[in-house]
């Protein structure tokens, strides 16, 4: 009697739990529910922009740096052209800047190094939860965009990368507010050494007030656009397209 009642209760609980679980997963799959939840992303972005303005991310001292800054995402680029460039320390390589600009640019590493430099020791926050503090150096993205001259329709800056993850080329994008933020740089130097392959040689985007997946590595080409639709999966970034991460990664 007691055993059967206990079993009955157990079965009831398991059944209710199963229903709840499948109910949660069904809600999770529902397009309408996902759209509703995704609406919070826009709310978060507007609220954060309003509250934070153009405040700078904290800059740390050398003593506060991570002893070991882990590599994440792509650690190696298979593309044969990239491998040749890496072997020659990117001699003859040039960063292409195009799209909605007056003057398309091709900037070699020497040209990037000759521009006014910004050095910042900042905290890198991965979407997974870990953080690492490192030192980055490079020209401000805003200076490069100013040199190219944006056309009036320009809204987004897209970063095309050399690495391929899960069979798709990596790319990322930010809007002009973040593109012209003082700490948004194209880093060619990290922790006082040229950027390693694992950390995104020859240049990596640093957009310090967003999460790690926005910090595109192996940047080959910068394209200024009016919209993100029509580029790759249309959601503005590799992880955004493939996994559904938020395009605005300020939280």
């Amino acid at each position: 009697m007691i055993v059967s009642r206990r079993r009955l209760l157990g079965m009831g609980a398991a059944g209710a739990g199963g229903l709840l679980l499948s109910g949660c997963d069904r809600l999770n799959q529902s397009e309408a529910v996902r759209q509703g939840l995704a609406g919070a992303e826009g709310l978060t972005m507007r609220a954060q922009r309003l509250l934070v303005g153009d405040a700078l991310a904290r800059e740390f001292t050398e003593a506060e740096m991570s002893p070991d800054f882990r590599v994440n995402g792509s650690s190696r680029v298979e593309d044969s052209q990239y491998r040749r460039l890496l072997a020659s320390q990117f001699a003859g390589w040039a960063l292409q800047v195009g799209g909605l600009v007056h003057r398309p640019l091709a900037l070699g590493l020497d040209a990037l190094k000759a521009m006014p430099q910004r050095t910042q020791i900042t905290r890198h926050d991965c979407v997974e939860g870990w953080s690492a503090i490192g030192k980055w150096q490079g020209p401000q993205l805003g200076a490069i965009l100013t040199q190219a001259g944006l056309l009036p329709q320009a809204r987004y800056v897209v970063f095309h990368c050399a690495d391929v993850l899960d069979g798709k080329p990596y790319y990322e994008s930010i809007d002009l507010i973040d593109a012209f933020h003082a700490q948004t740089i194209l880093a060619w130097r990290m922790n006082d050494a040229p950027l390693s392959e694992g950390h995104g040689a020859p240049v990596r985007l640093r957009v310090e007030r967003q999460l790690g997946y926005k910090q595109a590595k192996y940047v080959m080409r910068i394209e200024v656009t009016q919209t993100l639709a029509g580029l790759y999966g249309g959601k503005g970034g590799h992880w955004e397209d493939l996994r559904g991460y938020q395009w605005y990664a300020g939280i």
Binding site: Q48, L51, V52, G53, A55, L56, A57, R58, R123, D125, G129, W130, S131, E208, R209, Q210, L211, G250, I251
Partner: peptide, 26 residues
């Protein structure tokens, strides 16, 4: 939760200091 946001930390550095760092906040 807010102290884990890199954007909020830029605007309100005292918040992350209140918890002695982002990983402490986490």
């Amino acid at each position: 939760g807010l102290a884990m946001s890199p954007a909020i930390d830029a605007g309100f550095p005292w918040l992350v200091d209140l918890f002695a760092g982002r990983q402490s906040a986490r």
